[in-house]
Each structure stands twice: as structure tokens, then as C-alpha cells.
Design a protein around this nucleic acid. Structure first.
Lengths: 224, 224
DNA sequence: TTTTTCTGTTTTGTATTCATAATTCATTTT
DNA sequence: AAAATGAATTATGAATACAAAACAGAAAAA
């Protein structure tokens, strides 16, 4: 099956704005300047504003009537809430994955795992993240639940920027790798329940690290 | 706290279209006629199209490039997937609610429960639904997790029309009421784990009934 | 000095316009 | 009769235009 690449202007714009937020080009709490972005993207305001509507219902930006769009602040509260929900979703994905995953898919995940480990040993953080993400995606796919996948993806968008900003302590990294080892074991044993709880725990560890990173902005109570 | 009613045209339009879908005025698989709705709502196409973007990211409609918006079909597959995810979310809400709920809130829910039971005894289906919904909302609120609440609400939108179409068998109704009795017990005992699994089960029962209702359209494979 | 008021500018929300892609339907062809 | 072709119509996607609200900064008042 060939995936039709439905390139719409508003879809492109949404994707680019998401990236700009995650990469810190658009800062939390700041206004999103429509005109500027229109010029930058070479499009008119109509598709750009449509993109903002989409991003708003994803929780990436907030729309204040008559005063435009702002990048949402990641408060500690909200981050905790999001991780809690994502934990439940990933837990479910683990349970379902063990029920439906094929031998070939387990093998693929194992392969990804070893590649990830190689980057871990060399302390190559970006490629490590890359494979890490791909493993989690693979489990999501194996759960055979598109609604789950989309819901999770939508929440994941919001907190991507935390990941970008996280600085991995050695201790946390070690823990993360251990979690992954255990995940592989569960997949091989098709132990859904345990995989589910490992995934939930895994996410809780992430939260602790994320909370310590610099992207949280509870305190600043700028008037706006 | 006063809720600011930020009435935007696109927000209004989105709400009205949602209702029209749930009430069967816009049928699954059919095109959403922009012009017609614009005239009906007395607005121009711009805010209406923005509304469609929002509804699309909620999963209520699907946007096919250059051929407009359609009401999404509720396939059995998708319904099962959605209930599975909502089950995980409601399960979490149960666990969290038991952790944070106040005495007063439990009392409120008990009151709602007795009102619901009164309508059950008189077989008043609409008011029964009303209170049923309010109980589940109250639990969500007690979970003190806005992200969870919004995520759940978004998924709930999609399948509201099933609820509208469901015809309650006496057996199912009895089961549902029994579930609710058990839920109250759990809340009183602050037994989050058990409340979680009851909520998950409760939703699974719903699925069985929903699947039997007339709104599912797997089979029709209309060319579009 | 601080606050208030006023005016000009900018930005936002909505309507309108325009180009292009899709659809319809009569006509032709097989 | 069924299928294919093509012009006319319609609907969609995007740009532009316009009205109203928010904002900024200077001038006036406290």
C-alpha cells in the first residue's frame, strides 16, 4: 500500500511550527507572529491560521480570542498530567502488543535494541534517541490500535521539546537502558502485563528527569 | 471561577457540526457541504473551514484533499479501538480519583447515583443517561488531571452518536446499574485499583451493546 | 513623577475573490 | 446499451480585502 502524501499548505505549516516549537525557535508563552511566519513560509494567512487551529487542538498552542496564538507553557503540573496519561496509553500498548506481535516484529525490535545499545556504549545521544523512539513506535504499531497510536502521538507532540532539552545523567541513562532490556524480555515471553507496567515505570523515570530540565516554567507568572 | 465564554465563530460552528453529526443530521460517509452549512449558520467559509480542521483533529470528520470533508464512519474496528483506549483512560481516572477525591465529592456522586437509580426504576432513559454521564464526569474531575479529562472528552466526542443510537436491553441496563453500585463502593473504600478495573469492564460492556446498535457501518464499502 | 487619555498603527477575525481541481451530464463512440 | 469523452458547472484551496479589536506611544492631567 502506497501512502498518499497529501501535502496541504496548512498541514505543512503545522508541521513546521511544531518543529520550531520543539527546537526552541518559538518560545513558550510568546506570541506567534502570523505575518512573520506567513512571509517565512511563503504562504498567506488563511492556511497558517488553519494550522494554528490544528496545533491548538493538539495542545501545542493556545488561542486567545482577538489576541492571537501563543506557545503553551509546559508547567510541571501539566507535564506530570501528560506523563500520567501517556503512561496509561503506553501500558495498554504493551499489553496489546504482546497479544498481537509477530515473531518478525519482535526480531525487528531486538535489532533496533542492539543498534540503540551500540550508540549507548559510544554515548551518541542523538542516534540513541532516534532508535529509542523507533522501538517505542514499533511497540505502538504492534498493538494494532490506530486510535491508541494517534492519541499517544498527539500527547507526545506536546512534550517533545522536553526531550530535546533533557540532559541525560549517566544514572538515568543506565536505568533507561535497563528498562529497555526488560522490555525485550517481556516481548519475547509475551508477558503483556509486565511489559505494560515496565512501560509505565519507564515513563515515570522520564518525568523525573524532564522535570529537572530547564524547559519547565511554572514560576514565571508573566502578565498576559 | 467564572468560565469565560469565548464565543468564536469557528468554535460555535464546530460545536454545531458535532451536534449535527451526533443527532444524525449529517450522516457517516457523506460529504459535508460547506456552502450549505455556511448559509445555515450565517457565516462565511473561512470560520467554517477552520471548524472542520478542528473536528478533523478530533477524529469526527476526515479531510480529503481537494474533495472536502466527510463524516467519519464508525467501523467496528475503530469502535473497539476507541473503547480500548477510553478504558485505559477511565481506568486511570478511577485510580487517581480514589487518591484525590474529597468526602464532599463522594457524597455528590452518591447523590447523583440515587437520582440515576430513580430514573432507572422508572425506565426514563434520557434522564438516566444524563445522570450517568454526570457521574463519569465527576470521577474524571476528581482525578485532578486536566490532560486526562480533555483526552477522554475528545475520544468521547467521536462515539457519542453510538450512545444516541444504543437501545438498552434490560439485561445490559441491569449490568450497568450493578457496575455503578460497585463503583460507589470503591469510591467509599478509596479502592482505586478496583474502581479502575470496574470502569474498564464497564466500558467493555458498553462496547458489546454499541456494536449491536445500528450505527456501525463496516460492510458498506461505498466507493469514495 | 505617575496616571490617564487620545490617536495612529498593528494585528486579528471574517468576508470576499480568484485559480484550480473535481464533478456532473450531455454527447459521442464502441 | 454501455463505456468513454469533453465541456459546463460546482466545490475546494488559497490569497486578498476589509472591519473591528488590541496595542503602542505621545500628549495631557493629576
Amino acid at each position: 500500500m502506497i501512502k498518499i502524501q497529501q501535502s496541504t499548505l496548512y498541514g505543512e505549516a503545522a508541521a513546521r511550527i511544531r518543529d520550531m516549537i520543539n527546537e526552541g525557535q518559538l518560545l513558550p508563552g510568546t506570541r506567534i507572529p502570523e505575518k512573520k511566519l506567513c512571509e517565512q513560509f511563503g504562504i498567506s494567512r488563511t492556511p497558517l491560521r488553519e494550522a494554528l487551529k490544528v496545533l491548538a487542538s493538539e495542545g501545542m498552542v493556545e488561542l486567545l480570542p482577538n489576541r492571537g496564538a501563543r506557545v503553551v507553557r509546559l508547567t510541571r503540573q501539566m507535564l506530570e498530567e501528560t506523563y500520567s496519561v501517556m503512561g496509561a496509553l503506553e501500558g495498554l500498548s504493551g499489553e496489546l502488543a504482546c497479544r498481537y506481535i509477530s515473531e518478525a516484529e519482535v526480531a525487528d525490535i531486538q535489532a533496533l535494541h542492539y543498534q540503540m545499545m551500540a550508540h549507548y556504549k559510544r554515548r551518541e545521544i542523538r542516534p540513541y534517541f532516534e532508535f529509542n523512539q523507533r522501538i517505542h513506535d514499533a511497540i505502538m504499531l504492534a498493538s494494532r490500535n490506530e486510535v491508541l497510536r494517534e492519541t499517544h502521538a498527539s500527547l507526545n507532540y506536546r512534550i517533545q521539546r522536553v526531550r530535546y532539552a533533557t540532559n541525560m545523567t549517566d544514572e538515568y541513562w543506565k536505568q533507561a537502558v535497563a528498562d529497555h532490556e526488560a522490555m525485550i524480555d517481556c516481548l519475547l515471553a509475551r508477558d503483556g502485563e509486565r511489559l505494560g507496567s515496565i512501560l509505565r515505570e519507564h515513563l515515570r523515570h522520564k518525568l523525573v528527569v524532564a522535570a529537572a530540565s530547564g524547559v519547565i516554567d511554572d514560576d514565571r507568572v508573566d502578565s498576559y
